[in-house]
């Protein structure tokens, strides 16, 4: 009898605790019954969503040279690509001799492991924050080059993406760069 009452008391205390602000967030529509948490949970900075290709704003072409490293290293073989000669290189505008002609990722097979990003030598592929791409037909999320570049550009703009190799260079020569800029402002 005593134990029973004690148990009830414990449960009552817990119930009172339960009346605090709910942690449930509505998805995909924002807001819940009490109006808390207007936004669905945001993804973290490092979140690995579907992969996409990046766009070089300086030269107005993709970073990807279709070198096939990511395709060979992918554990699920979900990608394929075709290479072509870069017309901009012939005009002398680009340093890339070859460039991607077509690129396809079968997002049904992709396991979002991020190995492709890690092995890429040209900063050409990123794991975007895109994760809402479900569709009713099986082939709808086999994405090709235009969509990949569009997703990549969206990611670049949202996060202020800097190519990792460039970022590493900036970090390494950080002091030297700071000196030169200081010198530049003086002159």
């Amino acid at each position: 009898m005593f134990n029973c009452l004690k148990g009830m008391l414990v449960t009552l205390v817990s119930t009172m605790h339960g009346l605090r602000q709910p942690v449930t967030r509505q998805y995909p529509d924002s807001g819940n019954l009490l109006g808390h948490h207007p936004e669905p949970t945001p993804v973290k900075d490092r979140f690995m969503g579907f992969p996409a290709l990046t766009w070089d704003e300086d030269v107005q072409e993709p970073f990807c040279t279709s070198c096939m490293v990511c395709i060979r290293q992918c554990p699920t073989q979900c990608m394929s690509s075709v290479m072509k000669d870069n017309p901009l290189h012939e005009e002398g505008k680009s340093s890339r001799r070859k460039i991607v002609d077509s690129f396809e990722i079968n997002l049904n097979r992709c396991i979002l492991c991020g190995i492709c990003v890690e092995v890429c030598n040209f900063d050409a592929i990123v794991m975007t924050h895109e994760h809402e791409m479900s569709d009713f037909s099986r082939n709808a999320i086999r994405v090709d080059l235009p969509i990949l570049l569009e997703n990549g550009l969206k990611f670049q703009k949202e996060t202020g993406w800097i190519p990792p190799t460039q970022r590493a260079k900036v970090q390494k020569g950080g002091d030297a760069a700071a000196e030169t800029t200081a010198a530049g402002t003086e002159t």
Partner: peptide
């Protein structure tokens, strides 16, 4: 029923931390 709510909430917090570290809630690699 109640402990499941409490524990799932706690687990979700841990997984949110994992997401901020590795980029994925479960299959981290």
């Amino acid at each position: 029923m109640t402990p499941s709510m409490i524990c799932f909430r706690g687990r979700e917090r841990i997984q949110a931390l994992f997401e901020s570290v590795s980029g994925a809630r479960m299959m981290h690699n």
